[in-house]
């Protein structure tokens, strides 16, 4: 009977510890974005191509920028998916991770975990460096990459106002995506 109790206790303890989110805030110098689900997180990881990891479809060099990339945390083998880089303007993290494809790195940023939305192991990347390096690379190269890929999209304003694909989509279906006629009527009513 006593043995059964001990076994039960062990199972409960082990299960609970595997389900609880770990704290990776030690050593983090990440900046808060004042987000409800954010937790500062500094950890070591390998930069991986999740489509390769999950399906075995593995092009060279993590697809050279086409695919989303992930962080396989070295301490517990958890695959963390970065959604965002450190820039404010609607930009992801894959471009920031691409130069580090297949490498063991240290990252600092914000874990996004919200039980109400079933959000686990999501991340906002603020800086990254190869393990052993002292110099960090800020995760803010996206707009520079965009400018290089869109040399004709010149002018004033943020990239998302000048992006040719975004402009074409809005010109076709409007800001709401519901068609130009519906869009025009909504804009007239909303701003009057």
């Amino acid at each position: 009977m006593k043995n059964l109790f001990l076994i039960g206790l062990c199972i409960a303890t082990a299960s609970a510890s595997s389900m609880l989110a770990q704290d990776f805030s030690a050593g983090s110098t990440a900046k808060s974005w004042n987000l409800y689900p954010e937790k500062k997180a500094f950890f070591k990881a390998k930069v991986v191509d999740p489509l390769c990891t999950l399906t075995g479809s593995c092009p060279d060099n993590c697809s050279s920028g086409k695919r989303q990339l992930a962080l396989l945390r070295l301490s517990d083998n958890v695959m963390v998916l970065p959604l965002k880089n450190s820039q404010a303007a609607f930009t992801g993290a894959a471009n920031e991770l691409q130069p580090f494809c297949g490498k063991d790195v240290e990252v600092d940023g914000l874990l996004i975990e919200d039980p109400e939305l079933f959000a686990r192991n999501l991340y906002q990347l603020q800086k990254i460096r190869i393990i052993g390096d002292t110099k960090w690379t800020k995760a803010n190269r996206w707009t520079k990459d965009w400018r290089a890929a869109n040399p004709d999209a010149k002018g004033k304003g943020a990239w998302f106002r000048r992006d040719p694909r975004v402009k074409a989509a809005i010109a076709k279906d409007g800001y709401t995506g519901l068609g130009l006629e519906t869009d025009e009527a909504f804009i007239k009513e909303w701003f009057e």
Partner: peptide, 8 residues
């Protein structure tokens, strides 16, 4: 659209 184009 912005976020999709931005790689999120």
């Amino acid at each position: 659209l912005w976020c999709s184009a931005g790689g999120i």
